[in-house]
Simulated assay, not measured.
Amino acid sequence: MIQILHNLPDNMVGVELSGEVTKKEYDTIFPEVEKLVKKKNKINYLAVIKTPLSHLTIGVWWDDFKLALKHYSKWERVAIVTDEENISTVANTFDFAYPGDMKTFKVSEFEKAVQWASGTKATVA
């Protein structure tokens, strides 16, 4: 399941992934990113991943790659928030292939991840 996160700084998009995540669900992220690009002309992104790597289908990985490429020069910061060690390892291993700066955080560091991804010191509501 994918849930769009609200109450974040207005210069970022945030999502939470839990349970099994399919390509169809992942497609709901694209319009949020498009709105942000139109509004800010850059992308700061936060993904809270509360599901094992095995619950992300191949379609999700393909869509993630397409999302990264679509506005390649617009990506600024990507924060991956997870306690799933395999996801952190994959994110840290392949961060060179994705545009912008990427950093991983533990779930307990959510506030710190929001601040880093948005480039602000504002607190989350």
Rank of each mutant, 00 (worst) to 15 (best):
E85T: 08
D27W: 10
M12I: 07
P9I: 01
I80D: 00
Y72K: 13
I43F: 00
V81M: 05
D27P: 09
N41W: 05
P9C: 01
L53I: 10
F65T: 15
K35M: 02
S18D: 11
A68W: 10
K40W: 04
P31Y: 06
D83Y: 11
K40A: 02
F30A: 13
F65H: 11
S18V: 10
S73Q: 08
W75S: 02
T57E: 14
W75M: 05
W75I: 04
T57A: 08
V15L: 15
L69G: 09
V48N: 09
L8V: 05
K24D: 15
D63A: 07
L67Y: 04
L67C: 04
L46F: 05
I58M: 14
G14T: 03
K23Y: 12
L56K: 11
I29E: 11
T57C: 13
I29A: 07
K42A: 10
L36F: 03
K74A: 00
V13C: 08
N41A: 05
E20N: 11
K38D: 04
Y72A: 04
E32I: 01
E84L: 01
E32P: 07
L46T: 07
I43V: 00
V15S: 15
D27I: 06
W75C: 01
H55Y: 13
W61E: 11
I49D: 06
N11H: 07
K39E: 07
H71N: 12
V81R: 09
T28P: 12
D64F: 10
D64L: 08
I29T: 06
V15W: 15
K40V: 00
K70M: 00
D10Q: 10
L56D: 08
T51I: 06
L69P: 08
P31W: 03
H71R: 03
P31S: 03
Y26N: 12
D63G: 10
E20A: 08
I43Q: 00
Y26K: 13
I80C: 03
V78F: 08
K70I: 00
I80L: 03
L17Y: 10
L69R: 15
P52D: 00
I49H: 10
L56R: 12
K24V: 14
E16R: 15
E20R: 13
G19M: 04
E32S: 09
Y26F: 15
V78E: 01
I58T: 12
K66Q: 11
P9S: 04
L69F: 14
E85G: 06
Y45E: 00
D83R: 09
I58R: 14
L8D: 02
K40G: 02
G14K: 12
K23G: 12
Y45C: 01
N11T: 02
I43L: 00
I49S: 09
K70F: 00
V37Y: 02
A79W: 09
K42E: 14
K70L: 00
L53Y: 14
S54K: 14
E76A: 02
T28C: 09
R77I: 03
L46N: 07
E34Q: 09
I43R: 00
P9E: 01
K38F: 01
I58K: 14
D64A: 05
